[in-house]
Design a binder for these strands. Sequence first.
DNA 1: TGTTATTTGTACCGTATCGCATAAAATTGC
DNA 2: GCAATTTTATGCGATACGGTACAAATAACA
Lengths: 215, 215
Amino acid sequence: MVQKEIARRGRPRSYDPQVALTKALDAFWEAGYAATSLDDLSRATGMNRPSLYAAFGDKGAIYRKALEHYWADTRSAIAIALDERRPLREALQDFYDRAIEIYRSGNGRGCFMVGTALTEALRNPKLRADLHGSLHGLIRVVTSRIALAQSRGEIDAKADAAELAIIAVAVLDFLAIQARVGTERKALKATADAALNTICGPRPQQKRRKAQARS
Amino acid sequence: MVQKEIARRGRPRSYDPQVALTKALDAFWEAGYAATSLDDLSRATGMNRPSLYAAFGDKGAIYRKALEHYWADTRSAIAIALDERRPLREALQDFYDRAIEIYRSGNGRGCFMVGTALTEALRNPKLRADLHGSLHGLIRVVTSRIALAQSRGEIDAKADAAELAIIAVAVLDFLAIQARVGTERKALKATADAALNTICGPRPQQKRRKAQARS
DNA sequence: TGTTATTTGTACCGTATCGCATAAAATTGC
DNA sequence: GCAATTTTATGCGATACGGTACAAATAACA
């Protein structure tokens, strides 16, 4: 995975493009697309504006690359969490646990797509279509994962897998919303539990308290 | 409800503050807070900037007033939809139908709070706390409405009302997200049906198709 | 008719913004 | 060491931004 070290000709870069992109992502994630200036990005990455421009393009291009970076990470995390070798309940539990940790990072910044891209979507048809496709794809993945669990007899075979998947993804996005309005971890766990109990049925062995209506 | 016509002293206003505020709301709703300039607001309302400032204050104050206006409308719509005199399923159906119409308005702009306020929440503690409070309040209202239906024997009394309310509100916000990424009405209806069937149980009499995984 | 009160419209100020032009710096190849 | 190459750093230029000062406009009041 390490890039071969080819002796490059001119002055060497003083930044790592990958970490710089991550810093740019953080800046956008915090303030949103429109409220993040090139100076903010310059400060966040440690690069000056011309370097930023040479490396990633204009502000829109930086944002698109940051979004692609985020989405690639997200996809791989989802694939790991929903691993078919584990029971559905365990998979979904991991799915939500990972989401909660990400969404609570950075003072509870939530999901990058829900928190920043969604706002821009209305005036950016390409972005809008990409978000639509991502969401649709996620629902399809979760649907087939739930259908698999049904075929294994883990959950009620008469249930509608597509409907349960919609619930599952809706709760995922709801965690993002709750996190960004400052909801603490305990309440986020309760939200995830609501999804787990609804989709997989109430947990059998362990004791269950009634969920508090804290948000 | 008509204001008494008191003879005001100077030059009369050439705008109606209520409709101007609604136009400002529309502008923010479309582009988000940061991307909406005072010139945009001036264009949208037909007022020039000094009039705008005199009427509502600076940009932040205009936004706060627009948000309060939106939330007041939303609260009353929710109260009507969840009317205790109807069965829960009918109430929730109306709840989601109203949401879908609002969220699909303006080329699918979604929910004002999810689509614009959420982005700003991270850097605006007061706004964040308000959003948190609103969300929490909504969950509490829905929880007690579901508990009422349980006490009437409409749905399973052993279910956890608070958990079902979380699902209900999560799906509401999911409708907002789906609408803003361009999801068409049919798929939004399918999302709402997923919530209805999950919370109230599958509809008994009418024919049911399996939900497509369209988003 | 003149005074007072209120709103409108134009124009302006200081600052921030985006993108780029240009020069200085740092490295490799010869 | 010298030319070629690539990146960094400073700074510029045109525009956009939020907010306000000021005068013209329009009404009630006396």
